[in-house]
Design a protein around this nucleic acid. Structure first.
Length: 933
DNA sequence: GCACGCCTCCAGGAG
DNA sequence: GTCTCCTGGAGGCGTGCC
């Protein structure tokens, strides 16, 4: 990766330049230019005197039934949320220079003050945010199939936000019908007039309205071909993208069989992936609030208690703790020593008045381009916002813009890392499931190896230094989560922004389906395609043509072959590299190509379904997914392992590779998700059907070649003692037959199958023990069983041959035996007996059954402890009618030993069965039984 | 009233 | 709030028996 210094804008490049954004006619070259806005001129520096949201301005005043209302309007709750544009009208502004050096586009929003799009840019030289207001006259709009004259005489024209001067007919291509259509652009004076809550122009147009749920700032990004996270500069008041050299020859070499269209796309995308990410100047903030009850989080909607401490740790070296002086506490800490963990150069600043402390925090929020928090949306920033008002500050003095469950900044960007790490795709594909719990403590321990400061007393009782130390650590951890591994997290966020075209705020808060939606919407606008309505896709494509194995699912998924129980030495695992994305690409699957309108394509059937695929045009999803897949596999993945590159360069390529993986892995699933606006069941259905067909034929071929197939799940096959020749014939057969790479994934010295699907243990040739699906690995298994299980795996990893097994078996028996007798003798401490199970919804929403962890949680609630979704409940199984108790309330003598014996048996049983060991023989039950008969 | 079988719910995992 | 497939434990309910 070129370092920042070597990132030289290549303005002389002969390569097609990205369009220049400027006033006057649109430079996008796609359709006629929009007319100049009546407000095209820059208004005088008007300063609005209120922070305002589109609808209710106090989040706590938002009707809790808003979602229900939206549903009643026929809008699914999530779409109502999506359609909401948080419009800031604030007095806080950044500089609006007419010339800058290199900047990164952080975010696009709509300025209520100016009535136009606002771009927030990170100026690399200033290390601050600069503002750029749209000067191209772009207006909010939607599309209708009415002709212009019909529109002008329709009810919509009477809407106060309707702008007749911006309306005009446009040509679009309708992919569903594969034909050109004439639509009319319906211009609005502001974003609210398009949408609003049941009062927008779209509501007057009803079914004759299209593209009306795209938030304005996104619409602006797509139409102006902007790429958030990419480099721009302001030149003569206009926003100009910076060109980046593309290694055309090297790319041609890496993609020898690429079509011209593919190379074109590659050239366009390449700078997006490969340009470096700046080291953003940023600050992490954490607050502490005085609380009387230890188990209760102070309510930010009331903000009744004082903010007593705020820490700020910056990437620029800032180490600061702001402390409120309180009665009964000594500044020099009395006899208290400065905690060792608190760095000498951390400055402690004391305040007599809370309001002054808050003002200082607000100064920081305005100073930094990026503010990091952990749970700031729901707590820290929300609390500061409300608390400042409780103390008498006016809204316009507070540099925080509150939406529902989201806290934005008027100048910089707020990243709530809790939300980012909460993202399931990030958790699994980017961090390999390294952290399992969504707390700052658990995440930082997993990723950084440091923990929060453990408190002995409640926050209220801490002396100043201990409080400062505690608070400081939280900010330090929060910052370090973004600086670790050469700023992996910031790089990842920036790449997600670039690939999906979403602002930094959205990239860190929305899920994969939003990212992919945005990516495809942009692709539609780029190609001048009409973005279809979800109902129209469903109507044209119908549902699935298969029946799921599991009741309640919409279509059939992957194939899993049941393995035979036992131990097998010398096992090779082959798998198809990113099978589903490859299928989408190779089979040309896309919502418009699956069940396309052309009669002549109907012969091109998907195996085992009645779906067919278009033979006439390249599918949009197939093209984009194929591009992302190929560029990952053929360029970034090899680069991430290239020993001739520096570690930092390899690190960057690894992040690109991981970001692409996140998109690819979700690219199939979204089409089977009803919440996805391009939802298309036949597409998801076809993908898995082709997958089943491929793996089935591969298994057959392996058998034909004389190999023994032990097991198979979705895209992998486990082969027993295959020869090199057998493998290479199978690999080349698969490559030529399907055009998808079949690769050697793993080599096991041996594998033990329990006979169950998704359930085995193997020792890799490297000595690593690979465990899949066994209970001993699951989070909700009590520690004492887990520990014994780990001990057993250590024994197994020493096994190199069938002869070694006899010795291993007796060691394993001894481990299980000891585990059992310790339990029986009640020698195991309570903490090692806990089951940790997550609460997935509010307690009152468990209305069908009451699972054990919920029973335990209810007991905790009775004791005054708050229980929220996402909390892990630690409980033990006890005798008595309820059967469980939270560990905090249980005694060792009431433990239900028999229940735990059952758990030992089933956990170890999964391995013992394969080794032909009888559990009952180990614990002696069988013999007793024998004598008692 | 109670044991038993059967089905469903729930959590956690594989891919 | 990408998907389906799979396992194990417990809850909940109907059935048959005493």
């Amino acid at each position: 990766m070129p370092g920042l210094d070597s990132f030289i804008p290549d303005s002389q490049s002969k390569r097609r330049q990205p369009p220049r954004l400027s006033g006057g006619p649109s430079g996008t070259g796609r359709g006629p230019a929009p007319p100049r806005s009546p407000r095209g001129e820059r208004p005088p520096g008007g300063v609005a005197d209120e922070l305002e949201r589109e609808e209710a301005s106090e989040p706590e005043e938002v009707d809790p039934d808003t979602e229900a209302e939206a549903e009643a309007e026929g809008i699914p709750a999530h779409e109502a949320e999506e359609a909401e544009e948080i419009i800031a009208q604030t007095k806080f502004e950044a500089e609006t220079p007419s010339e800058t050096g290199s900047c990164v586009l952080l975010s696009v929003s709509y300025s209520g003050n100016r009535g136009r799009a606002l771009a927030k840019l990170y100026d690399l030289e200033r290390q601050r945010v600069v503002f750029w207001y749209d000067n191209t006259g772009h207006q909010p709009y939607l599309l209708t199939d009415m002709r212009l004259d019909e529109l002008l005489s329709s009810e919509a024209a009477s809407h106060p936000g309707f702008d007749p001067r911006g309306c005009r007919e446009v040509e679009k291509h309708d992919l569903l019908q594969d034909k050109a259509v004439t639509m009319t652009k319906v211009a609005a004076k502001d974003p609210t007039s398009v949408g609003g809550r049941g009062t927008g122009i779209r509501d007057l147009l009803g079914e004759r309205s299209w593209e009306d749920r795209i938030r304005y700032h996104e619409c602006f990004v797509y139409d102006r071909r902007l790429v958030p996270g990419y480099y721009y500069r302001i030149r003569g008041g206009s926003l100009v993208p910076e060109a980046q050299p593309v290694p055309t020859d090297a790319l041609k070499k890496a993609f020898p069989d690429a079509t011209p269209a593919f190379l074109d796309s590659l050239t366009e995308w390449f700078p997006i992936f490969s340009s470096p990410v700046p080291d953003y100047r940023r600050v992490a903030i954490d607050i502490e609030v005085a609380t009387e009850a230890q188990d209760r989080v102070p309510d930010p909607q009331v903000a009744a208690n004082p903010v007593i401490c705020v820490s700020a740790v910056g990437s620029d070296g800032r180490k600061q703790v702001l402390i409120l002086r309180r009665e009964g506490f000594d500044e020099d800490g009395g006899s208290a020593e400065r905690p060792k963990e608190l760095p000498e150069d951390a400055s402690l600043v004391y305040f007599d008045r809370e309001i002054d402390l808050l003002r200082e925090v607000f100064r920081l929020l305005l100073d930094y381009p990026i503010v990091l928090t952990f749970n700031g949306d729901n707590f820290d920033l929300h609390y500061l916002w409300k608390r400042a008002q409780v103390l008498g500050m006016r809204r316009e003095e507070i540099p925080i813009v509150m939406g529902r469950e989201i806290a934005l900044l008027p100048v910089g960007v707020h990243i709530d890392l809790y939300k980012f790490f909460h993202n399931h795709a990030i958790q699994i594909y980017a961090f390999g499931n390294a952290y399992k719990e969504l707390t700052l403590d658990a995440i930082s321990e997993a990723l950084l190896g440091i923990k929060k400061i453990q408190l002995e007393k409640s926050i209220n009782e801490l002396d100043y230094l201990s409080l400062a130390n505690y608070c400081f650590r939280d900010s330090l951890i929060t910052l370090r989560l973004t600086t670790e591994h050469s700023s992996l997290v910031m790089n990842l966020i920036t790449l997600i922004m670039r690939i999906s075209r979403v602002s930094m705020e959205d990239a860190t808060r929305q899920g994969v389906s939003s990212w992919i939606r945005s990516l495809f919407y942009d692709e539609h606008r780029k190609g001048n395609y009409l973005i279809p309505k979800k109902e129209d896709i469903s109507l044209a494509k119908g549902g699935s043509s298969t029946t799921a194995v599991i009741k309640g699912k919409k279509y059939k998924g992957a194939l899993v072959i049941k393995p035979e129980s036992g131990v097998f030495f010398n096992v090779i695992v082959l798998d198809f590299a990113s099978l589903y994305p490859s299928i989408i690409s190779r089979w040309n699957l896309s919502y418009e190509t699956v069940r396309c309108p052309h009669p002549e394509c109907r012969k091109n059937l998907v195996p085992d379904t009645d779906h067919w695929v278009c033979t006439k045009r390249v599918g949009m999803m197939a093209h984009v997914v194929g591009l992302l897949r190929d560029v990952r596999v053929r360029w970034f993945k090899p680069k991430s392992k290239d020993p001739s590159l520096s570690e930092e360069e390899r690190g960057y390529y690894k992040v690109v590779q991981q970001a692409l993986k996140v998109f690819l892995n979700a690219s199939y699933g979204v089409f089977g998700a009803e919440i996805f606006p391009l939802y298309c069941l036949p597409l998801a259905d076809s993908t898995t059907a082709i997958g089943r067909n491929i793996i089935t034929e591969t298994i057959e071929e392996a058998k034909t070649l004389g190999m023994k197939v032990l097991y198979s799940d979705t895209d992998s096959i486990f082969l027993h003692q295959p020869t090199k020749e057998q493998i290479s014939s199978l690999l080349s057969w698969a490559e030529s037959k399907f055009g998808i790479d079949l690769e050697i994934d793993k080599r096991y010295t041996f594998v033990t199958f329990s006979g169950r699907k998704k359930n085995y243990l193997g020792v890799l040739d490297s000595g690593i023990v690979d465990i899949k699906g066994l209970m001993g690995k699951k989070r909700n298994t009590p520690p004492f069983i887990k520990n014994a299980f780990v001990e057993m795996t250590q024994v197994l990893r020493e096994v190199k041959s069938p002869q070694d097994f006899e010795a291993a078996k007796s060691k394993i028996k001894a481990i299980v035996q000891r585990c059992y007798s310790d339990l029986k003798a009640r020698r195991i401490p309570l903490d090692d007996l806990v089951f940790k199970v997550m609460i997935s919804r509010p307690l009152d929403r468990y209305d069908k059954t009451t699972p054990q962890h919920v029973k335990a949680a209810k007991l905790l609630e009775e004791k005054g402890k708050e229980v929220k979704p996402g909390d892990l409940i630690s409980f033990v199984k006890v005798q008595g009618p309820l059967g469980v108790k939270p560990v905090q309330l249980a005694r060792i003598d009431e433990v239900d030993v028999d229940k735990y014996v059952g758990h030992i048996e089933s956990t170890f049983g999964q391995v013992l069965e394969a080794l032909n060991i009888d559990f009952e023989e180990i614990v002696g039950v069988k013999r007793l039984d024998f004598f008692s008969r």
